[in-house]
Nucleic acid binder design. Structure first.
Lengths: 196, 196, 196, 196
DNA sequence: CATGAATGAGACTTCATTCAT
DNA sequence: TATGAATGAAGTCTCATTCAT
């Protein structure tokens, strides 16, 4: 029957939602399984039917939320493209800036997923989401048009994303050594240099 | 004969050494205070005479080891300079490469200090070590010679270090998405671009 | 078969019994949670399922035992009333004497509950036990028959009980400044004075 | 030499003062030896040169403060006697009321010494202070004038003090079951009854 | 007498995980 | 599948007391 399967999915989601709320509110280490099942309204044992342990839940939440944000950014980029012609540099910077600004407004979320939101999401041939894959391919193609090999192109994209991620986590979460507004001009200037 | 003050310092060091060994062997979370004091050969209460808690010890170890490594790299650079003339680009790449190769050979140490070995160690005006400060000033001066302001120069240095740190942690600790040998050429190529 | 709810109550009681035995044998401060759970035959965590901490257990035991003793005294009074006619003074003194003699024979118990077995158990309008309430009301009524207001009557009863409690704790537990047999005549003489 | 002996007494006093302040501020259980020696400005080991342990200190402080308060009350009584003729009942009630009001204004002190400020201070033949002994003798004599034996007189005094102590500790420290102002009239009324 | 670093037993509590129902 | 009572190992930290200096 369909209902049973749907109920299961619902419980899974309730646990993920409860976990997400608690993790960003109290931190991962300060959240215990009891908190999660209480908030989700299920019994303690039920948790272990759906997740191996707390860190399994963390990983699944992280993956879920990361994909959500990236898809949002790509969606916005698509919208913008319809309104004005954008060259490659403009597109990359728009995409990056969208992510950066998003996390600036969602620090709690950034704190949670930073450990797992690695640039790897955008790399390799193992990207799970087709839309995402298409977007990455488009970016990569642009690098290749400049004479890079496929691998060089992929690596360049990865390095840029890693750089932005590292610098912006510092800036947003700790405002050290520079706040986001302080570092942005130099950061974007350097990205442009890399895109030449 | 040892003075009382020397004995105290010795105990401190013994605890830090014991902690370091255990942290890199078993991981921070799997190391308990009992392990540390047993290995250091002191009583449990003694630990709390010197450190607030386990994480205080972690932080002090991290700082200690980070400074040690950076000082090593600077020392090697100094040696090299005596042997051959080096321009700015060469010096920066030598310094970076020394750190990268060092951590490649000391993965456990990298795992431990990565969280705290931030690029910040090299930034700002609050650098604690005079030798380190001098070296950073020299690097910064080179960027300023290219027409950047002091702040731009400092930020550029910070961003490069952050980029290298992020990429190399992935490469060394997880070999994902690229191993160190795979990513190095592209990484160094991009650094050179940024130094132009 | 036992129901789950009955099993829970049983565990609670086992913990209270174990705690009571240990507290009167070794004292509260010298009894540790480990002792209690070991004696009760449950796991340590189980203790915290039923009680907030050691002092929560102490309080619950105290209340439980106090009510038990008072109910005993009232029961005996009831029995006695059937055998002979008793005026108010006689009843009060019988009730008091029962408690005093009981505790003389149960010094350990007195030591445990003295801190919490306050005269308050017999006062105010918040008495939890209906039988107890009825008995108190009867006593109070007698004072009111002598022309006191309700509050005066309640306060007089409270003061007598407080006086007896204080003097007898000294006498029974420390035999200082007077032993129970030494002080009793004067104490009861003074009570009679107060009842006039 | 005199100085050495005086220095010792000074240290003793500093420790007692520090202990008293901390005990009434933080409570006995929450005060550790470290707090005391730090506040007194001596080394930890020194504490054990003067006191067996924390509870030894508590007892000595309690005795010291109790005597101080009682002497104050007797002094005030003496003053009052000079101004107006007082009969026995008036004197007893004045003395009691002075103590009660004093503790009402020094709840912290009451909390500390209640456990040890027993009526015993005023009883027996072991009173250490000569002034106190004289005053107690005078009170006792009055009871004997009414036909009581020496022991009855002493016991009556003891019982009254115990009663007042018990009731007023409840009233002042917990305001339960009655506040001081609520219970005072009935309490003093009953004392007068006992003095008849 | 005075010091204070060192001791280490032991206290309390937490919480991931299991398993009988 | 779902439950939640029970588990008990593991963990951190405290603090009275000692003793070499």
């Amino acid at each position: 029957m369909e209902t049973a399967s749907e109920k299961k999915k619902l419980k899974r989601l309730k646990l993920m939602d409860a976990g997400y709320d608690l993790f960003i509110t109290k931190g991962i280490n300060n959240t215990v399984i009891d908190d999660i099942v209480k908030k989700a309204g299920v019994a303690k044992g039920t948790f272990y039917l759906y997740f191996k342990d707390k860190y399994d839940l963390v990983n699944q939440i992280t993956l879920h939320k990361s994909l959500f944000v990236i898809r949002e950014a790509l969606g916005e980029l698509e919208e913008r493209r319809k309104q004005e012609a954008m060259d490659f540099e403009k597109e990359i910077l728009f995409f990056i800036d969208y992510l950066v600004e998003f996390f600036q407004g969602h620090k709690d979320m950034l704190k949670l997923i930073r450990k797992n939101f690695s640039a790897k999401l955008l790399c390799g041939d193992s990207i799970s989401d087709p839309d995402l894959q298409k977007a990455v391919d488009a970016f990569t193609q642009n690098f290749m048009n400049k004479g890079e090999t496929l691998q060089q192109a992929q690596q360049t994209l990865y390095i840029i994303v890693a750089m932005v991620g590292s610098v912006c986590c510092d800036a947003i979460l700790e405002e050290e050594p520079y706040s986001l507004s302080q570092i942005k001009p130099t950061l974007y200037f350097l990205i442009r240099k890399l895109l030449c």
